[in-house]
Design a protein around this nucleic acid. Structure first.
Length: 310
DNA sequence: AAGACGAAAGTGGTTGA
DNA sequence: TCAACAACTTTCGTCTT
């Protein structure tokens, strides 16, 4: 921990642009490079003892030696109801030690409950986040990023008038992009049950209000994802990338749904490399229609002079 | 029978008056 | 605020392998 702290304080040059104008914003817990706008945030966040609100000494001590502090801490059993019989799941009485523990947990939970509504809904949201992201098999850094984004949104009072789930889904989408683990609106929509357009709208909103500096969705990230999901050969994946690069160079991609281009690239590559996938397969994976693939691949192969002998 | 094709109508978001 | 518009989808009949 100390090590980490010292390290952070020593950051004086931006890893991105090598600029030296690093601004520290203690309130937001961010380090910002004023040269290129890079936010070195997640390293800094949640530094202080966020557990201090439980002013019980015992707890304070435990908190600092326990699990690493992460934006996800509101989760972890705290939202579970704790029964009032001092018995374990078999109905046997608990030992003194266990009973004391259960008692503390109960007290803790009660305190959590009593706290203000924003905290309560935050806790709820975070546990919801865990459910969704584990259903989607998302890595931890994505979860933490999503939690961070959600927290910031909550702090800025951006949730009011919107639904928790909607913002959460949008935060998750943003986090996926930030971490280069791209997921489509469709996927997130399927898991969360939030309509795609709502996620998209909330995402735009968050991105504007929180000034998330996300690079435009990289078709390349999607290409990798879908390429592997389709079990496309390495050769074909490389080919798809080639096609995509070319298409971008020729400015054939502006104003188009990147997913359509990605799907078409994958399809063309699969045909060219003799590892053919049907339009249907590709369409299903990527989440566009066959018609779109058809139109796009016609357009692409024509403009790029690629001959597909079918 | 499955895949590919394309026309036609429908949908939701963006744009510009 | 609203209509025009472009991109994409849905649906469906037809052609190809």
């Amino acid at each position: 921990m100390n090590n980490k702290k010292r390290l952070l304080e020593e950051i004086t040059t931006c890893p991105e642009c090598k600029g030296t104008h690093i601004i520290r914003d203690p309130n937001r817990g961010e380090l910002i490079c004023s040269d290129c706008g890079l936010v070195l945030e997640d390293e800094l966040i949640d530094y202080g003892p966020d557990w201090r609100s439980f002013d019980n000494e015992e707890y304070e001590k435990k908190a600092h030696t326990g699990a690493p502090v992460s934006p996800l801490i509101h989760d972890g059993g705290l939202t579970t109801e704790i029964g009032y019989q001092n018995r374990d799941s078999y109905g046997n009485p608990l030992s003194n030690k266990a009973r004391a523990q259960v008692y503390r947990l109960r007290k803790w939970q009660k305190r959590l409950r009593i706290r203000n509504s924003t905290d309560r809904s935050l806790a709820e949201a975070l546990s919801q986040l865990m459910k969704i992201s584990s259903a989607m098999n998302l890595p931890r850094d994505v979860r933490e990023t999503a939690a961070m984004i959600y927290r910031k949104a909550a702090e800025k009072d951006l949730i009011r008038g919107r639904t928790i789930d909607g913002i959460l889904a949008a935060a998750l989408y943003a986090a996926c992009r930030q971490c280069h683990v791209p997921r489509t609106f469709d996927e997130i929509s399927k898991v969360t049950g939030i309509p795609k357009k709502d996620i998209a709208r909330n995402y735009r909103f968050l991105s504007r209000e929180l000034k998330l500096r996300l690079p435009p969705a990289s078709p390349l990230d999607y290409l990798k994802l879908f390429g592997s999901r389709l079990h496309l050969s390495g050769e074909a994946q490389a080919k798809a990338k080639e096609i995509l690069d070319q298409a971008e160079k020729e400015k054939l991609t502006v104003g188009q749904n990147p997913l359509g281009i990605v799907a078409a690239s994958l399809y063309i590559a699969s045909v060219l490399c003799g590892d053919k996938k049907t339009q249907r397969e590709v369409a299903e994976q990527v989440g566009v229609t066959e018609v779109t693939i058809r139109n796009k691949y016609k357009q692409l192969s024509e403009k790029l002079g690629i001959d597909i002998a079918l």
